[in-house]
Simulated scan of single mutants.
Amino acid sequence: MKTTETRTSAAVTRAAVAALAVGLGLVALGGVVSGSTAAYGALVGTAISVGVFAFGAFAVDAVSRLMPAASLLFAMVTYTFQVLLMALAFVALNRSGLLDDGLSRNWLGGAIIAGAFVWIAVQIRLSTTARIPAFQGPSEGGAR
């Protein structure tokens, strides 16, 4: 692999690890500050956040490798699906009664928001510092 080639899956993995690390930090903080319901809420929020973002990022990455022309359309459809999936997760948690008894709503929401911000920040950092070639030279398979 050349230094100009990028590995999107590695960037997604780094973003997932960073969001997971921040989420687990919130689980520990919630457990110390507010008890087990806060820790469980932060844990579920971290799982939802990392799961939804990882699913979308890996799916868009796979489609962009197979059909680059369809990647923008698929990214928009995936984003819509992620929003619906997040809403369904909240509805399911609300109807199950877990948000009233076993999980702290505030810590769950905070973990999702923190996971989203960390994920986006890592993705932006890795995307803006990636070395992506603007053109192919003659020795790389271009016209001679």
Rank of each mutant, 00 (worst) to 15 (best):
G30R: 00
L26Y: 07
A92H: 13
V17C: 08
R125P: 00
V118M: 09
M1G: 10
L98M: 12
V122N: 00
F90C: 15
A47C: 12
A59H: 07
I132F: 14
A70W: 02
L126R: 13
A59L: 06
D100T: 00
D61K: 07
A62L: 05
F90P: 15
Q82Y: 03
A28N: 00
G97Y: 12
F55G: 03
S104P: 00
G30V: 01
L24G: 10
G41M: 03
A87H: 13
S64Y: 13
I112W: 07
V32W: 10
A16S: 11
L99M: 06
L66M: 11
A69D: 11
L84T: 05
A62D: 00
I112E: 09
L99F: 05
L126C: 01
F90V: 15
S49Y: 06
W107L: 03
Y40A: 14
T80C: 10
M1A: 04
Y79M: 03
Q136P: 01
V44D: 03
R125L: 10
V17T: 01
G23A: 01
M1L: 04
D100W: 06
F53C: 14
R7T: 13
S104L: 01
K2L: 11
T37N: 06
A92Y: 15
L108Q: 09
P138I: 06
L84N: 04
M67Y: 11
S71G: 06
P68Y: 11
P138K: 08
I113D: 02
A57N: 05
A116Q: 07
L73S: 03
S9I: 09
G45K: 02
V91T: 15
T78M: 02
D61T: 12
G137T: 12
G30D: 00
I132V: 15
A130L: 01
S64K: 13
S34Y: 08
P133Q: 09
R125Y: 10
R131T: 14
V17G: 00
T128H: 15
L66F: 09
A11D: 12
F55D: 04
R144H: 14
L72H: 10
I120L: 14
G56T: 02
L98A: 13
F90Y: 12
V44N: 11
A75T: 10
A54R: 12
Q123S: 15
E140V: 07
G51Y: 04
A89I: 12
R125G: 07
A28I: 02
V63K: 07
L126K: 02
G102Y: 08
A10W: 13
F135Y: 12
A89K: 10
A18K: 05
G51M: 02
A28M: 06
L26A: 03
T78G: 02
I113T: 11
S139W: 10
A54E: 14
V22Y: 01
L85S: 14
A143C: 08
A143R: 15
A134V: 11
A19S: 10
G45M: 01
A21W: 05
R65C: 05
A57G: 08
V52L: 08
S139Q: 09
V33Q: 06
I124N: 04
I113K: 06
D61C: 10
P133S: 11
W107V: 09
V52C: 04
A18Y: 11
R105W: 11
A70P: 03
A15E: 04
A38W: 00
A92C: 04
